[in-house]
């Protein structure tokens, strides 16, 4: 599904070059559930942003569903990621001024989905996530776990092939975290590839990811892989 070869990212500070990613080689197949672990500052989030095409890189090759990302223009890249990638954040990043319903609907607005289809899709996912009763509430009126649920619903609404999650349980208590991880496993079983970044070993184990990578000092290493 995606492949990174010798990817480097850096910023220039004066005549000093500060690396953000070093020699990243990574191949992820469709249907995998990948966990990337590592201490903070090791470049996990940067890597996730690069995979999600939110951030650029300076050197190397990145192929995503057959497209060479490093050769695409900004606009094509936006089109590619908005069609295929969903994002889940540690801080949920819901829009405070919008209701649950409107938050979930947002990605569809930018993909020119017809009004009636939008309604059906949002209703469907509200039902699946058991949050129909909350649809008219604002994010501030929800608990952290519920907000993250909305965040995941929003990430999945456009049926992406790949779900990227940056510390999705980082702000939640362990029970809420477990629920989110169960949900992730279910989503993964239904065919969505998931890459999550975490520094919590426990969460990771519960998730029973198919592959686990370890990141340290801006480099990535495969730690374990389960073949089903």
């Amino acid at each position: 599904m995606l492949e990174l070869k010798k990817v480097y990212k850096w910023v220039n500070n004066g005549n000093q070059r500060i690396f953000l990613l070093k020699d990243i080689n990574l191949t992820i197949n469709e249907g995998e559930f990948v966990s990337i672990m590592g201490p903070s500052g090791s470049g996990k989030s940067t890597l996730l942003n690069v995979i999600g095409m939110l951030d650029s890189f300076d050197e190397g090759i990145y192929n995503f569903v057959g497209e060479s990302v490093h050769q695409l223009k900004e606009k094509q890249r936006t089109n590619l990621y908005k069609q295929h990638i969903g994002f889940v954040f540690q801080a949920y990043h819901l829009i405070d001024e919008l209701t649950v319903y409107e938050n979930i609907e947002t990605p569809l607005l930018y993909q020119n989905v017809k009004g009636s289809d939008r309604k059906a899709m949002v209703a469907d996912i509200l039902d699946r996530f058991n949050i129909v009763a909350k649809k008219d509430l604002f994010p501030a009126q929800l608990s952290g776990g519920q907000q993250q649920l909305v965040g995941i619903a929003r990430a999945l609404i456009a049926r992406p092939k790949l779900l990227l999650a940056d510390e999705p349980t980082g702000n939640l208590n362990s029970k809420q975290g477990e629920e989110i991880m169960e949900l992730f496993q279910q989503v993964n079983k239904e065919g969505t590839t998931i890459i999550q970044v975490t520094h919590s070993e426990k969460m990771q184990l519960m998730a029973t990811a198919s592959s686990v990578y370890w990141m340290a000092l801006l480099k990535i290493k495969l730690r374990s892989r389960q073949d089903n």
């Binding site: 936006t78 089109n79 990043h93 405070d96 001024e97 947002t106 930018y110 993909q111």
Partner: peptide
């Protein structure tokens, strides 16, 4: 700015 960031990640074009 946060909202703008979220909307961009959701695929909102700059013009929008």
């Amino acid at each position: 700015t946060k909202e703008v960031g979220i909307r961009k990640v959701m695929g909102a074009p700059v013009r929008e």
